[in-house]
Design a binder for these strands. Structure first.
Lengths: 347, 347
DNA sequence: ATGAAAGCGCTAACAT
DNA sequence: ATGTTAGCGCTTTCAT
C-alpha cells in the first residue's frame, strides 16, 4: 500500500494575490484583473506574461474579495434540512444542489437534527455569509428571527413543512390527502379497524397525515379510536409498545398506516416476528419495498421534485419574480404492492 | 440607506452596514464593531444604544468582509462526493457535517456525479471561496490541478478512494480484504463457481474489490474465469446481460459477489424473478437487507466512520498537525444473513 | 471609553 | 492598451 512519505500538509504558506501577480508580470493590477476575468483590452503578449505569472505563483482569484467589491450576489444558497442522511431528505438535497449548479450557485448545507437552536445557528451563519437565498425544512416553532433577513431581501423557501410566524414561499406534499388515500385503500380491502403510527404531533406533516387519516375514517362512517393512534418520535421501544397495544387489545387493528419512512421500516422490523401480519400502508416510498417478503404498499412522495420545485422557486425570486408568497402542494401517489391489499383475518 | 419601506420578496435593497448602525446610534464604527464582537471597552449605555440600532435596522455582520480583513480562516470546508443521494455517501456526508459543526465550520457540498469536470469545477469554486480545507471523493483520473491549492496550504483529504497524481491524506475501506472475505465466505459454503459483478474498473474501489475476489479464489486453488467477471457501470440492461451469461452458460456460477450497494440492489431485482437463486454476498450494507425474502449477507463498510475519520483528519491538519500524508484503511465487516450461506444446488 | 485612518483583495470608474 | 485611485464592510492600529 502507498505508505507515508514526507509532505508538510497544512501551512498557510501563502496565497498570492493579484498584486503579487502584477509585480511578477511587471504590469498593473487592473491588467491582471482583466486577464483573470477575460475582459478585453489586453495585448496578447501582456496577457501571456500575466498568465505565466499566474501559473508560476499558483494564483487563484479570491472570490470573497471580488464579491465584497461587487456587492451583488454571492453565488451561494443555504440549505437547512432535518437530516442529510435520511433517505427522504437526501434526494431532496441532491435536487436542490442540481438546480443551484445550473444557476451557477454553490450550496451551503446543514442538518438541523430537529433542534431549533441548530436550525437557527445554521441559518444565521448562512445569512452572515450573505447567501443569496435560503431553502429550509423548518424545525423551529417560531421563525420570526428570519424577519430581518427577509426584510433585507433574502428570499426564503420552506420545503416539506411551512414556517411558523413567517410568510414564505412553501413547497410541500399534500399530506392530508395522501394519508386519506392510504386509509381509503385499506378501507377498500375491507378493513375497519385501522391504526395510525404517526410521528410527533408537533411536526406539521405528522399532524396533517393524522388529519387525513381521521377524515378518511369519518367519511366512511368508521369511528376513530384513540387507542388506534400513536403519535411519537420513531423510537423502536415506543413503537413496540404502541404496536402491542394496537394488535393485542380486545379490538385489535387489522391494518396500519405508518406515518413516514422511518416509522414504516421500524414497524416492518417489529412485525416481521409476528405470525399474522396486519395489512400495512406506509407513507413515503423506500428502496426495496417491492422485494420484501410482503411487498409494501406506500403513499409515495417525490422528494427530488420537492427539492427541485423549491429551488426553482428560489431562483425565480432571485431573478426578480415578484408577487405574493406561493404555496405549492405536490400530489402523492399510492403504489399498491401487496401489503395494503391483505384481507381482514377473521379470528 | 437603511430604507425600512415595505418591500416585496426578493430585493437586494437593504442590508445595513456597520456604518449605518454607527450613524443611527451616533457612535463610531469601531464602537459598533466592539459591541458586535463582544469586545470590552464600551460603556453600558453606549452599548445599549448600539444594540437598539442593530435591532432596529436588522443589522447582521457581513462575515465575508470580516474574514477578508482578518485574513485567517474562513470557517468553511468543502466536500465533493459522488452523489449525495446515494445511501452510501449520504451518511458519510452527514458525518463530515457533524465534525465540521463541532469545529465551528460551515460546509460547502457538491456532487461530482462521476464527472471529472464537475469535480474540478466544484473544487476550484470552493478554493476560490477560500475554504479552509477540502474533503474529496476523487473522480478525476488526474488531480494535479490541486497542486497549487495544496502548495498554498489548503489541506486535502481524500475519502473512499485515493487521488491520482497527488499525495494527500486518504481514508478508505480495506476493499481488497473485504471482497476476499466475502468470497471466502462463499467458498466455505461449498461454492467453487463464484461470479463477480463489479463496477467500472476505472474506479479504484472496483479494481481493489476485483483484486480481493481473485486473490481469494487463487488462494483456494479455484481457477478464475473471465466469463464469471463483469466490470461495468450498474446499468440494469448490462447487469441483466452479465447475469444471464453467468447463470445460464455451460458452467453457470452458483454464487455471486456484488461489487457495491447499487449493484446488489439491481442484481436482487433481476434475481427475484428466477426460480433458483444463486448464493449472494453484497459489498456495502443497506437498509432492510435483513427483511428481504432471503436476507442478504453483506460485506459492510461504515460510511459514517469514513466521513468522520476524514473530517477529523482534516481538522487535525488545520490545527497544525504536521507529518507525512496519512493512509488510513478501515476494516469491513462480514454480516451473514442467509443469502451467502445458501448451499450449492446440484442440477 | 471611543474614534479616525489604513488596509484585507478585489473591481468600478476614471485617467493616460 | 494599460495604470491609478477609490472603496466594498469589516478589523487592526494607534490616537485621543
Amino acid at each position: 500500500m502507498p505508505a507515508s512519505q514526507a509532505r508538510p500538509a497544512a501551512e498557510p504558506g501563502g496565497r498570492s494575490t493579484m498584486k503579487d501577480v502584477a509585480a511578477a508580470a511587471g504590469v498593473g493590477v487592473k491588467t491582471v484583473s482583466r486577464v483573470v476575468n477575460e475582459e478585453s483590452g489586453v495585448g496578447a503578449a501582456t496577457a501571456a506574461r500575466v498568465r505565466e505569472a499566474i501559473e508560476a505563483l499558483g494564483y487563484r482569484r479570491n472570490d470573497g474579495a471580488r464579491l465584497l467589491r461587487q456587492g451583488l450576489r454571492t453565488g451561494s444558497v443555504g440549505l437547512v434540512i432535518e437530516d442529510l442522511a435520511d433517505p427522504f431528505y437526501a434526494p431532496l438535497c441532491r435536487a436542490v444542489e442540481e438546480v443551484a449548479r445550473r444557476h451557477g450557485s454553490l450550496l451551503f448545507s446543514g442538518s438541523s437534527a430537529q433542534q431549533p437552536q441548530r436550525e437557527r445557528d445554521l441559518v444565521l451563519a448562512f445569512c452572515a455569509r450573505r447567501v443569496d437565498g435560503l431553502i429550509l425544512v423548518p424545525t423551529s416553532a417560531d421563525h420570526s428571527y428570519l424577519l430581518p433577513e427577509q426584510a433585507a431581501g433574502t428570499p426564503i423557501v420552506c420545503v416539506d413543512r411551512p414556517a411558523a410566524g413567517l410568510l414564505t414561499d412553501t413547497v410541500l406534499s399534500d399530506n392530508a390527502r395522501g394519508a386519506r388515500e392510504g386509509v381509503e385503500h385499506l378501507l377498500r380491502a375491507g378493513h375497519r379497524r385501522i391504526g395510525f403510527l404517526g410521528d410527533a404531533p408537533e411536526i406539521h406533516t405528522a399532524a396533517e397525515r393524522l388529519r387525513g387519516y381521521c377524515a378518511a375514517l369519518t367519511a366512511a362512517g368508521v369511528p376513530t379510536r384513540e387507542a388506534w393512534v400513536s403519535m411519537s418520535a420513531p423510537e423502536p421501544a415506543r413503537l413496540h409498545l404502541a404496536l402491542e397495544r394496537m394488535l393485542t387489545g380486545r379490538r385489535p387493528v387489522s391494518a396500519l398506516l405508518c406515518g413516514n419512512n422511518r416509522i414504516t421500516v421500524a414497524a416492518l422490523r417489529e412485525l416481521a416476528a409476528l405470525p399474522h401480519r396486519p395489512a400495512l400502508v406506509g407513507f413515503d416510498d423506500f428502496e426495496l419495498a417491492d422485494l420484501l417478503t410482503v411487498p409494501v404498499t406506500v403513499v409515495a412522495q417525490d422528494p427530488a421534485r420537492l427539492g427541485r420545485t423549491a429551488a426553482e422557486l428560489l431562483f425565480a425570486r432571485l431573478s426578480g419574480e415578484r408577487g405574493p408568497a406561493q404555496w405549492i402542494e405536490l400530489p402523492t401517489r399510492l403504489i399498491p404492492r401487496g401489503s395494503g391489499e391483505l384481507p381482514v383475518r377473521h379470528a
